[in-house]
Structure formats: structure tokens, C-alpha cells
Design a protein around this nucleic acid. Structure first.
Lengths: 141, 141
DNA sequence: GTACAACATTTGTATATACTTATATAATAA
DNA sequence: TTATTATATAAGTATATACAAATGTTGTAC
């Protein structure tokens, strides 16, 4: 029955997704960080020369209910990001990753990549592309 | 590059998994429940005539760090499960879903199925099977 | 048998999260 | 202008979660 196959597939997506973030979170904690903090640093690092607002960071977060303000508070306290009032719109905040933040992110990336390395060999490139395609199709509106 | 494809695929799994559980959690809260509570009820309903221990329930949980004891406390307070000392091993607890629990679960399932119904049409049976296969392969040890 | 380790669950506690409300700024309309 | 509404972020608060420690039970070595 198709319905059963659907629920099995979705269950696999859900458990795999949670299992991966849980494992990474545990590893990151050993390095003094957390998955949400890592997530914010990563988002900021993509366009490391331009500032992002809280909203823009929120959009990229895995856990959508993350309180980015408070996560940024913590990163700020550790000198990993800067947060200044946006010049054009003083409601917004310009948040940027610092040089220290980028350095620290590199360390965290090593930990995360080490976690992924065995999994990375499990599927061929074609299979990974197929996986991407199928999930995109499933979650499209 | 294969590595990029890998990370894109994994990112899709993670965001899809979290997005689905978040959405379902929000819906369940409108029905007076939560995703973890629903998860426990579902696990208990599969073998509804035999009791499960805290450990066995834990194994089936999406969020592995769920404190099953406390989730069961809440279900118990609402009469949805029973919890008695296991006869063979008094360290264990025999937890069972009640008739009320099964009825309530039916209601929750309607809500959850309604959420899934549009997504269920997105992929063909063959595609769902392929998805299952790929995630299994990715997460196998 | 008594001690000691292992096991199953619960409880304590600090932190994080979800959700609401508040604050401040900006945009719009009368 | 000055209300009014919308927007962006932060703060308040209750609940949930993560992790450690405690409790009670069983298994095992001596």
C-alpha cells in the first residue's frame, strides 16, 4: 500500500534528520558550542562580508523557533559575532561574524566533517542527487 | 563535487525532518497534545495488548533524549496510559495504552493524516521506495 | 550470605525552547 | 502633525529538555 510506504519514508526522514542533529549537537558541546550556535555561525560565514539581520538568520535556521536574539547574545559574549544597529533601518540589527568567529567555525567544521566522513561514502554521487531531488519534490508546495 | 552534493542532501534531510515534526507538533498542541506524547502513544499502540518498558519506548522515540518517565507522567494524568511495576523485574515498569488512549490517538491521527495528505501525493510509490532505500543506505553502519 | 557492579527508572537542576508581550522604529493615512 | 498599523528585535515567563545524581532492584564474585 502506497500510504504505508509514504509513512515509512517520512519516518525515515524524520529520524535521520533528528539523529544527525542530535549527534552533531553532542559533538559540538564537547567543543564548547551547540548546534544552533554553529548554525548561526555557518549562516553568517556564507556571506561573511555582509551583515545579516536577525530575520535573515532565522530563515536559515534548522530549528525555526530558535530565538536568534538570544543565540546571538551568546556568540557576542564570546566575541564570535558583532551586532550593531542597522544604519538604514534602526529596527534592524546588522550581525556579522568576526575573524575569531571564522577561526572558531573552522575548528567546529573539522569536528562536523569528521562526523560526516563515514556517512559520506555510503552513497554514490548519483544517489545523493536522487535523494536531493526526491526530498525537494516531497516538500515542494 | 560529491562532497557538496552530500552536504546538500543531508541538509535537505535535516530541514525536512525538523520542519515536519515542528508542523505536527504545532497541530497536536491545538488538540491538547505534543509530538513526544503522540510519539509515545503511537509506539504503545503498535502492540497494544502487551506492555512496554520505559527503555523500549525510548528506543522508538524520534527525540532520543526525551524523558519518557515524565512524558508518561502526563499521559497517565490524562488516563491515556497505565504504568505498573513489572512482575518479573521490579526495576522495570509495564506501560500500556488505555482504551481512552487509543480513542484519543485516533483523533490525533486524523489531525496528522490531514497534515500529510497533500504531501502524500507528491511522490509515486516507486519514488517513496527509492527514498526509503537511500536513507537506509545512508544511515546504515 | 555480603559486598559490589550493573541496570531501570525517577528526580533534581540548570539551561533552552516556545510562546506571549513589550519596546522601539518605520510606514501610512487622516 | 499625530494617530494607527506594521515591522524588527528583545524580554518575560512557563514549560520542556539535557545531563547528572539518586533510588531501588537485580546479578555476580567472593
Amino acid at each position: 500500500m502506497k500510504e504505508d510506504t509514504y509513512f515509512e519514508a517520512v519516518h525515515k526522514i524524520i529520524t535521520a534528520g533528528h539523529m544527525i542533529t542530535d549527534s552533531i549537537n553532542r559533538l559540538l558541546k564537547s567543543s564548547g558550542s551547540t548546534e544552533p550556535q554553529y548554525n548561526v555561525l555557518q549562516i553568517l560565514s556564507i556571506k561573511k562580508d555582509e551583515a545579516l539581520t536577525v530575520d535573515q538568520i532565522q530563515d536559515g535556521m534548522v530549528q525555526r523557533n530558535s530565538n536568534v536574539s538570544r543565540i546571538v547574545d551568546k556568540l557576542l559574549a564570546n566575541g564570535l559575532v558583532t551586532r550593531i544597529e542597522c544604519a538604514e533601518n534602526r529596527r534592524k540589527k546588522d550581525i556579522k561574524i568576526t575573524k575569531e568567529g571564522l577561526e572558531y567555525l573552522k575548528e567546529l567544521n573539522l569536528v562536523v566533517e569528521y562526523y560526516h566522513s563515514p556517512m559520506m561514502e555510503k552513497l554514490e554521487k548519483k544517489e545523493l542527487e536522487s535523494l536531493k531531488f526526491l526530498i525537494s519534490k516531497l516538500t515542494s508546495d
